[in-house]
């Protein structure tokens, strides 16, 4: 059974993007949002997540492995497409193109972000607390790098949710797909707000 695994891998890729990666993304940004209520509030929430039982197993199977698989197959998917928005400037074709661009940006962002936080903490070079993010985001460049990274991630998630609904045959009619476009746009705006709001708090203390 080495042949014809593409269907299985592509469906797994689609599923993993939502469960667990999408769910983790929302959880991550919501927990970050504790920062808005103050340093102590964030440290308490981050401490709770850090001290969850079986943390290494949870991280490995809910975060690291799914993202690794999604990223590797995703990069392949990006290189298979020959984008043609110049000739066919339809809305969905642009979404298709931006989905691939944000996928690559998100991958770069996540690699950097994990290196700077989780890996640094794991190696004992940093402490998981409010001041870690405050320090990183005090640089204007890093603030904007994080803004681009977070918006790109939330777009990729929201638009991916739309394709998930099509790939799993949930939204079949043009009408349901259109409603799903509006619904996922709302998801994009809501999740982006949650993420960006905490970044502003970390960077500017407001």
């Amino acid at each position: 059974m080495t042949e014809n695994r593409e269907f299985f891998y592509r469906r797994l890729h689609s599923l993993l993007g939502v469960v667990p990666i999408g769910i983790f993304l929302i959880q991550h940004l919501v927990v970050n949002h504790f920062a808005v209520y103050g340093e102590e509030s964030f440290n308490k929430a981050a401490g709770f997540m850090h001290d969850l039982p079986f943390r290494i197993l949870l991280e490995t199977f809910i975060i690291f492995l799914p993202i690794l698989f999604h990223a590797i197959l995703g990069v392949y998917i990006v290189f298979v497409a020959r984008n043609n928005t110049r000739r066919y400037g339809f809305f969905r074709n642009w979404m298709f193109y931006i989905q691939r661009i944000t996928g690559i940006i998100t991958l770069i962002f996540i690699v950097w972000h994990v290196w700077e936080t989780r890996v640094a903490i794991g190696l004992g070079n940093a402490e998981l607390d409010y001041s870690l993010m405050e320090g990183i985001l005090s640089s204007t460049f890093m603030f904007w790098f994080y803004i681009v990274g977070v918006v790109s991630t939330t777009f990729h998630f929201a638009n991916g949710l739309w394709s998930f609904l099509v790939s799993w045959g949930i939204t079949v009619t043009p009408k349901s797909q259109k409603i799903a476009t509006y619904a996922t746009l709302f998801v994009f705006i809501a999740v982006t707000y949650i993420g960006v709001r905490s970044l502003i708090k970390f960077a500017y203390g407001i």
Partner: peptide, 17 residues
């Protein structure tokens, strides 16, 4: 469901246009 089948669709929806 074989390689090159339906999973190759990336939902750009140019076809219907």
């Amino acid at each position: 469901m074989e390689d090159g089948g339906i999973s190759g669709c990336g939902n750009s929806q140019n076809c219907v246009q």
